[in-house]
Simulated assay, not measured.
Amino acid sequence: MMIVKPDVAEPSIRPAIAADVAAVTRIVADAYRHYIPRMRQTPSPMLDDYAERIAAGVVWVIEARDAVRGIVVLVPKPDHLLLENIAVDPICRGTGFGRLLLVFAEAEAIRRRCPEIRLYTHATMTENQRLYARIGYQETGRRSEAGYDRVFMSKCLT
């Protein structure tokens, strides 16, 4: 079976709406499912209530060819913007959607006058830690939180 990647000519990022709940939930599940054996538990993004998160206005989606292809969850905090989750549909790997969502997250933090963007990832997701380090995030700590071994990272935007 041949998999055809979607046309990426015109991706756009917009706030998620209620009609996106199913697509967002599916993309997160598909993007994180392969981590379950490594983590020996369900990744926390797979447990989120995306109807609730979308209603709270913290979920953004990237669309291409009239379909949601990826998501980012951005939670405002008093002194920073928390990039809580980023996921791209696995069929869109290599399209640059993840990079576009990361650039968007940083631009959104700057727009909100946040001097810093923070994120966390699971300790076993070493490839994510390397990616974030390559684009300027620095590790700020490691600790167990909500039953997960997390690596915390931040990037100064000033």
Rank of each mutant, 00 (worst) to 15 (best):
I17E: 15
G94H: 09
R111Q: 10
Y35C: 02
L82Y: 15
R134M: 06
R53I: 01
G136H: 06
V21S: 06
P78D: 14
M39Q: 12
V75L: 12
P45W: 07
D30I: 00
D79W: 14
F152M: 07
Q41L: 11
T126S: 12
M1D: 10
V59R: 05
L83V: 08
Y32T: 09
Q41S: 04
Y137G: 03
R40M: 11
A29K: 15
F104D: 05
T158C: 12
L119Q: 05
E63L: 05
E145C: 07
I54A: 06
D49L: 01
D48V: 11
Q41T: 14
P6V: 09
N128I: 06
G141D: 01
R14G: 02
I86Q: 10
Y50W: 08
R38Y: 13
R53N: 13
E127S: 13
V72L: 03
V21G: 04
M2Q: 10
L81K: 09
D149S: 13
G147S: 09
V72T: 11
A67Y: 01
V61W: 07
G147C: 06
V103C: 10
T140F: 01
P115Q: 11
L119G: 02
E145Y: 13
R14L: 01
Y137Q: 01
L102P: 00
S144C: 14
R118F: 03
Y32G: 08
V24P: 03
L157F: 06
F152I: 02
D66T: 04
L83K: 04
A109E: 06
D89Q: 05
V58F: 06
R33S: 14
G141S: 05
L74D: 10
A16W: 02
A146E: 15
L131P: 05
I71W: 00
R53Q: 14
A56S: 11
L119M: 10
R150H: 01
Q129E: 14
K77N: 12
I27Y: 06
L157K: 08
T124A: 15
M1C: 11
F104K: 05
A29I: 09
G57Y: 06
K155H: 02
A18V: 10
A123M: 08
T95S: 15
M1H: 10
I62N: 08
D49N: 14
C92P: 02
P37A: 03
P11L: 03
L100C: 06
E52I: 07
T158Q: 14
V28G: 06
G98C: 05
A22M: 08
E108D: 00
V151W: 04
M1S: 15
R130Y: 05
R33C: 10
V151F: 08
R38V: 11
G57R: 09
P76T: 02
R118Y: 03
E106W: 00
Y32L: 00
R26Q: 13
S144F: 07
A64L: 01
A51L: 11
P37I: 06
R150Q: 05
A64R: 04
L101E: 06
T126I: 10
R150Y: 02
V73S: 13
S144G: 14
A23P: 00
C114F: 10
L47G: 11
I71G: 09
A18T: 12
R40C: 08
D149F: 03
F97W: 07
F104V: 01
R69L: 12
R38G: 07
V68F: 02
L47H: 03
I71Q: 15
V58M: 03
L47R: 14
A109C: 04
R69Y: 09
E63Y: 00
T126F: 08
G141H: 04
F104P: 01
M153I: 00
M125H: 07
A107W: 07
M125K: 04
